[in-house]
Amino acid sequence: MRARIGAGLRGAGLRSVCLLAALAPAAAAAQDAFPNRLGSGVPSPSITAPSFPPGPAEAEASLSLSAILAGIGEPLRAGLAWRIYDDRGDGNRPSIVARSTDPAPSFRLAPGAYVATVTYGFASASKRITMAGQQQTDTLRVSAGALKLSGAVGDQRIAPAQLAFSVFVPVGTNSEGRLVRSGVKAGELIRLPEGTYHVVSTYGESNAIQRADLKVENGKITDATLNHRAATVTLKLVAAPGAEAFAGTAFSVLTPGGDTIREAIGAFPQVTLAEGDYVLIARHDGQVYTREFKVESGMDRDIEVVAKGA
């Protein structure tokens, strides 16, 4: 009886082993198909979010600009400088987004607020412009005129190379309160905002100076000639009147009060001086010679110092 039971148990155990062996491939397949996410070590399938194409970029549009003279409405066709600034409204300094020197430029701008500026010489104008994806055209009005300067002594025009002008804006009682520009040449066109200006004209490199207050009007050129009372003298140190000048002589031109007006070195340097009385000092080979002389407007001449005993 025991033998049969044992045999039966052994037979049952064999059937169980066979059954487990038969089920193992199916279980493995099921585990491959449905992995244990917590502890199997098999990575979970990744989930990729759907991608969408980027939205359309903000539509740019063209901004066409031109400039005219205020008052007379005459178009400005040269000498312009355009700048476009972004207007972010955050109190920070705006940055330049575009620039041009064309008389009638066109800019491609994204929607937003901008400030358009144009300069015409020393005159300028600006305007706030809002772009909304549509083409725009605008005109800026510039309040400006111009100065054209020259100089003369009597009826005789002064050569442009011998003249230099400085232009100032008066401030209060100070006629030279703010310098607008120096080194202006005769005949040069200076574009300026409408207003009154103080002009200083220097003839030569000494004290021949003239001043004038000039008015600039919109759309007009103020052509002014400043008349100097001066002359150009040639300085010479000679052994006798009309003799050959000594080379390497050092000259000093002084006022009667002793203020130095000009110094020069050479055999016969030329000096342009305002009308008036002067003292000339000549130094040569350790010797000093002096002479008083007078300058009369428009009378260019030689000023000789005789080296007595030379």
Rank of each mutant, 00 (worst) to 15 (best):
residue 108 R to S: 15
residue 108 R to N: 11
residue 115 V to P: 02
residue 97 V to C: 10
residue 118 V to G: 08
residue 124 S to A: 15
residue 84 I to Y: 06
residue 112 G to P: 04
residue 98 A to L: 08
residue 119 T to V: 11
residue 131 M to P: 10
residue 128 R to S: 05
residue 91 G to V: 05
residue 100 S to G: 08
residue 98 A to S: 12
residue 110 A to H: 13
residue 131 M to C: 05
residue 129 I to Y: 10
residue 129 I to T: 00
residue 89 G to I: 06
residue 85 Y to I: 01
residue 90 D to Y: 14
residue 116 A to D: 13
residue 116 A to R: 12
residue 102 D to P: 03
residue 126 S to W: 04
residue 88 R to H: 08
residue 84 I to Q: 01
residue 123 A to K: 11
residue 129 I to P: 05
residue 114 Y to I: 01
residue 89 G to Y: 01
residue 105 P to M: 03
residue 100 S to V: 08
residue 109 L to S: 04
residue 97 V to P: 08
residue 105 P to Y: 11
residue 119 T to A: 13
residue 107 F to V: 02
residue 120 Y to K: 11
residue 130 T to L: 13
residue 109 L to I: 11
residue 103 P to V: 00
residue 84 I to G: 03
residue 126 S to K: 07
residue 99 R to V: 03
residue 108 R to Q: 03
residue 102 D to R: 12
residue 94 P to D: 04
residue 96 I to K: 07
residue 95 S to F: 14
residue 102 D to C: 01
residue 121 G to F: 02
residue 86 D to E: 14
residue 83 R to I: 08
residue 95 S to I: 04
residue 82 W to I: 05
residue 111 P to C: 02
residue 101 T to D: 15
residue 122 F to W: 15
residue 109 L to Q: 04
residue 112 G to E: 02
residue 119 T to C: 01
residue 103 P to N: 06
residue 125 A to E: 12
residue 97 V to I: 13
residue 91 G to T: 08
residue 120 Y to D: 00
residue 95 S to V: 12
residue 112 G to K: 07
residue 115 V to R: 13
residue 117 T to V: 13
residue 89 G to D: 06
residue 131 M to L: 12
residue 90 D to K: 14
residue 96 I to Y: 07
residue 90 D to P: 05
residue 88 R to D: 01
residue 110 A to C: 03
residue 91 G to I: 00
residue 105 P to R: 06
residue 110 A to D: 00
residue 88 R to Y: 08
residue 89 G to M: 03
residue 129 I to Q: 06
residue 111 P to A: 03
residue 128 R to V: 07
residue 90 D to Q: 04
residue 98 A to G: 15
residue 113 A to P: 08
residue 83 R to F: 04
residue 83 R to H: 14
residue 126 S to Q: 14
residue 131 M to W: 13
residue 119 T to G: 02
residue 84 I to E: 02
residue 106 S to P: 05
residue 119 T to N: 12
residue 125 A to V: 00
residue 123 A to M: 10
residue 86 D to M: 09
residue 88 R to G: 03
residue 84 I to R: 09
